[in-house]
Amino acid sequence: MKWNRILTYSLIALLLFMMTACSNGTDDTAKKEEQTDAVVEEVTDLILATTTSTQDSGLLDVLIPMFEEDSNTNVKTIAVGTGQALEMGTKGEADVLLVHAPASELELVESGDATNRQRVMYNDFILIGPASDPSAVKGMEVQEAFQKLFDDGAVFISRGDDSGTHKKELDVWKSLEITPGENAGYTETGQGMGNTLQVAAEKQGYVITDRATYLAQKENLDLEILVEGDEDLLNIYHVMQVNPDKHDKVNSDGAKAFVEFMISDDTQTMIEKFGQEEYGESLFFPYTE
Rank of each mutant, 00 (worst) to 15 (best):
V75G: 10
W173R: 00
K249H: 14
L98A: 08
D151F: 07
E105Q: 13
S71F: 04
Q147W: 03
F67T: 02
I64A: 05
I263V: 15
K91W: 07
F146Y: 11
V120I: 09
W3M: 09
P180A: 09
A30K: 11
T213P: 04
Q268C: 06
V207R: 01
L48D: 03
G190I: 10
E33Q: 13
K2I: 09
F67L: 08
Q84A: 08
D124V: 02
L7F: 14
I271A: 02
R119P: 06
F261Y: 12
N235L: 11
T196N: 02
D152F: 10
G164R: 02
L106C: 03
T269S: 13
V155I: 13
V39I: 15
V80D: 03
D161E: 10
S71L: 02
V109N: 05
G92I: 09
K249G: 11
Q143D: 10
I208D: 10
L283M: 12
L283R: 05
P244A: 07
M19W: 01
V99S: 02
A85D: 03
A101R: 01
S57Q: 04
A21R: 11
L170R: 13
G112M: 13
T213A: 05
H247L: 11
E42D: 09
D222R: 06
K249F: 12
F67V: 05
V199G: 02
G205D: 11
T82A: 10
M240Q: 07
T189M: 10
M262L: 15
D113F: 03
S57F: 01
D248G: 04
L15P: 00
F125D: 01
N251I: 05
L226N: 01
K249Q: 15
E87C: 07
V62R: 15
S264A: 14
D248A: 05
